[in-house]
C-alpha cells in the first residue's frame, strides 16, 4: 500500500463506494494501516472526511445542474438516484462541469424513476440549457444584414444556426414540465414536442416549434439554401407561395431571436429552381423598437413577395 499507485487506487475506491454512514464500511483496511491516527481521530475518521466531501460535492453539482429533476423527485429519491448514478458513471472529466453528462441516459435506465417516464427528457432539457449557456459565441445575423441582401440573392443564401442553438425532440411537453417542476410531479399527458433552445445575450431561452418551423430549421441546420428551405416547407404546406412566405417569416423570427449566421453558398450549390421567392422585410420602425429585446415571436413581421427577377409582384398573383 506504500506505492503511490496502490495508495491512490485504494483511496479513491474507499471514498467513492458509498455515502453517509455506510462510507466507512468500504474503507480499504490496507489503506487505513498507512493513515495516521491519534487520540482525537482514528484513521477511518480521517478518511471519512474525504468520503463525505466526495458525495456531498458531486450531489451538490448534480442538484445545481438538474434543479427541475431534483424538485420532481424530492430530496430522498434524488439523493438515492444520484448515488446510483455516480456509482454507475463516475466522473471521467477533469472539470466538474461534466459530471452530469450521462445523467439523462442513466435516468432512462433507472428503475427507481420509472414512474416518471418524462424525467430523462426533462434532464436532457436541463443539460441542453447548460450546454447552450457556455456554447461558442458567434456574431448573429442582424435585421440590417437581412435587408441588405438583394432579392435576387435570396435563393442561394445559406443561413446557419449559431453554435448556441440546440433542437430537442420529446414525446412529452417537457418545456411545460420545466416551467412547472418546482413541486410534485405534474400530471402531464404525452404530447409530441420539438423545442429549440438558444442563447441570446447571456440568457438561455427555449420555445416549442410547430411542424413548419421544425421542418425549416432542420433544413437550415443541414446547410440548405433559402430556396431549398422553401422547397422543404412546400412538401409540408403544399403551396409554393405559402411555403415561401412562411420561410421568410421564420427567417425574420430567427433573426429577431439572434439564432442565425450567414454562410453564402456558391451558385452551383443552388439546386432548387423556384419561380417565387419571399423576401424577408422587417419593418424598420419595429426593428429599432425591439432590437434590444428581440425575443418575442409575436411581433408583426412583413414579407414581400417577389419574382426572382426582383420585380415587385402582387401578393398571391
Amino acid at each position: 500500500m506504500r506505492a503511490l499507485r496502490d495508495l491512490q487506487t485504494a483511496f479513491l475506491r474507499s471514498i467513492a463506494t458509498a455515502p453517509g454512514p455506510e462510507a466507512s464500511g468500504s474503507f480499504d483496511p490496507a489503506l487505513l494501516r498507512v493513515v495516521d491516527g491519534d487520540a482525537r481521530q482514528a484513521p477511518g475518521d480521517r478518511l471519512d472526511v474525504y468520503a463525505q466531501m466526495y458525495w456531498m460535492r458531486l450531489h451538490t453539482v448534480l442538484r445545481e445542474d438538474y434543479p427541475r429533476v431534483a424538485a420532481m423527485l424530492g430530496d430522498d429519491l434524488f439523493s438515492s438516484v444520484v448515488r446510483a448514478y455516480l456509482t454507475r458513471f463516475p466522473s471521467t472529466h477533469p472539470s466538474v462541469r461534466w459530471v452530469g453528462a450521462r445523467f439523462a441516459d442513466f435516468l432512462a435506465q433507472c428503475r427507481e424513476t420509472a414512474p416518471w417516464p418524462l424525467l430523462p427528457d426533462l434532464a436532457r432539457l436541463e443539460w441542453a440549457r447548460l450546454a447552450i449557456f457556455d456554447a461558442a459565441d458567434a456574431p448573429a445575423l442582424r435585421m440590417e444584414d437581412v435587408r441588405a441582401i438583394p432579392a435576387s440573392e435570396w435563393p442561394k443564401v445559406v443561413l446557419r444556426p449559431i453554435p448556441a442553438l440546440l433542437v430537442l425532440h420529446s414525446p412529452w411537453p417537457i418545456h411545460e414540465c420545466w416551467a412547472d417542476a418546482d413541486g410534485p410531479a405534474p400530471r402531464v399527458r404525452p404530447a409530441e414536442t420539438h423545442l429549440r433552445i438558444w442563447r441570446q445575450g447571456d440568457a438561455v431561452y427555449q420555445a416549442p416549434m410547430d411542424p413548419c418551423e421544425r421542418r425549416a430549421l432542420e433544413a437550415v441546420v443541414s446547410g440548405a439554401t433559402f430556396a431549398a428551405t422553401c422547397a422543404a416547407l412546400e412538401t409540408l404546406v403544399g403551396d409554393p407561395e405559402r411555403a415561401a412566405r412562411d420561410a421568410a417569416q421564420l427567417v425574420l423570427r430567427w433573426v429577431e431571436d439572434e439564432i442565425l449566421v450567414r454562410v453564402d453558398a456558391r451558385a452551383s450549390d443552388v439546386t432548387a429552381s423556384r419561380e417565387w421567392i419571399a423576401v424577408p422585410v422587417a419593418d424598420p420602425g419595429e426593428t429599432a423598437k425591439n432590437g434590444a429585446v428581440a425575443n418575442s415571436s409575436s411581433r408583426q413581421i412583413r414579407v414581400r413577395l417577389r419574382r426572382l427577377d426582383d420585380r415587385p409582384v402582387r401578393k398571391g398573383g
Binding site: 503511490l4 479513491l12 471521467t92 466538474v96
Partner: peptide, 18 residues
C-alpha cells in the same frame, strides 16, 4: 492528486510526502 484510473474525485486529495 484528484484522479486515478480516469476517475475524477473533484477534490484536492493528499499525497504521502515520500
Amino acid at each position: 492528486w484528484g484522479s486515478v484510473g480516469g476517475h475524477y474525485a473533484h477534490d484536492l486529495l493528499p499525497l504521502p510526502f515520500t
